[in-house]
């Protein structure tokens, strides 16, 4: 809570996502993969975005960096960076934003680097694309960056090729590449998923330290609550293309306001409490073609009421967080739960 209090100083947010919709036109109609998602990221803040596969978290990230893979497209809403609208920029304009103002880190460090060029060449290329530096200055900056991300012997390693680095080292190089033109925001899409557990922690710590030092905000997309808990200031929980809950990370973890978040937290095994089985949320996230009426989570929800079946909740204040659940509406979930009919 302290962290969020600090970062939520009363200035305009760095990134503002408002009612974002991402669509995929398919032969069988249009799929709405991201539906009415809104959030903000303040300068220097780390926002964790968590959710199951297919919840729309990576798509939201890709929409922000303007790299949705066709035929996916932003169908509605706005994305603003420092007040400037970036979701409708022409390709060439957006290209100048990418790397320079928004950096990106992807899941797999093994495949994110071009195998045919030395890491130095890739760094210098990126630096010179965005910054007016000479070849020598760019090289010096590249060496400094490699040192900063903790690559020993950076002066020699700069001329090495990606295959000469280990996975963790490569992800450090990727982080250096994302940071090399000094962006204000980094969209990190599952940055540690492909790494060994022991290295995950190092990479996360590094990312956290660098962003603090450079004042870079991070949108950290992951399905790993542990990473979120350790790194993020605030967390957004996504479910079936929508934000289910968003709030300071401590509150969301300690006192989840949305039944889905509750289930998510409940399913994290802890060493303290040995139970017979791992807790799990019954059922599965609906496919995009079969999102139920009302609240998308209603078939799996224990608090389901009449209202959840027909009316879709938007984010509403719930304690220090905001949650998309009628439980936090003065009118509640409506008439008593309709029983287990829908499950059959």
């Amino acid at each position: 809570m302290a962290a969020s209090g600090k970062s939520a100083l009363n200035k305009a947010p760095l990134l503002e996502v408002k009612n974002l919709r991402v669509e995929f036109p398919t032969r069988r109609g249009t799929l709405l993969a991201v539906d009415d998602v809104s959030f903000e990221i303040a300068a220097g803040e780390v926002l964790g975005v968590v959710g199951e596969s297919g919840a729309g978290k990576s798509l939201t990230g890709n929409a922000i960096i303007g790299l949705l893979e066709p035929p996916g497209r932003v169908a509605g809403g706005e994305i603003r960076l420092e007040g400037r609208r970036i979701d409708n920029l022409p390709y060439e304009e957006m290209r100048k934003v990418r790397g320079a103002q928004i950096g990106a880190i992807f899941q797999d460090p093994l495949t994110s680097l071009n195998p045919l060029y030395s890491v130095g060449r890739q760094l210098i290329e990126t630096i010179q694309t965005h910054l007016p530096l000479s070849a020598g200055q760019a090289r010096q900056r590249a060496i400094d960056l490699l040192k900063e991300v903790g690559i020993p012997g950076a002066e020699q390693r700069i001329d090495h090729y990606p295959h000469q680095f280990s996975g963790g080292m490569r992800q450090r190089v990727v982080i250096a590449l994302a940071l090399c033109a000094g962006p204000k925001l980094i969209v990190a899409d599952e940055p540690t998923t492909a790494l060994d557990v022991s290295i995950q922690a190092q990479v996360i710590a590094l990312l956290k330290r660098l962003c603090r030092e450079h004042g870079t905000a991070v949108m950290l997309v992951t399905h790993d609550m542990g990473v979120i808990a350790e790194t993020a200031d605030r967390v957004a929980v996504m479910y079936a293309g929508r934000v289910a809950e968003i709030g300071p990370v401590r509150d969301v973890i300690k006192q989840a306001r949305h039944p889905y978040t509750e289930g998510l937290m409940g399913s994290i095994p802890s060493l303290g409490h040995r139970s017979e089985r791992l807790a799990q949320i019954d059922g599965a996230m609906p496919r995009l073609t079969e999102i139920p009426r009302g609240c998308a989570f209603n078939p799996r929800c224990g608090h389901r009421g009449q209202r959840c079946l027909v009316e879709r909740p938007d984010l509403m204040p719930a304690g220090s967080s905001r949650a998309a659940c009628w439980l936090h509406d003065p009118r509640g979930v409506g008439a008593a739960a309709v029983g287990e009919l829908a499950d059959a």
Binding site: F106, P115, T129
Partner: peptide, 26 residues
């Protein structure tokens, strides 16, 4: 379709650099 081309785009490299420098060479 590879990740390094996507990452090259995410770094804001020019199309020319991506198509001829990174893609063609591979």
């Amino acid at each position: 379709r590879t990740d390094y081309i996507k990452f090259a785009r995410a770094r804001g490299l020019t199309n020319r650099a991506i198509n001829f420098g990174h893609a063609l060479k591979n």
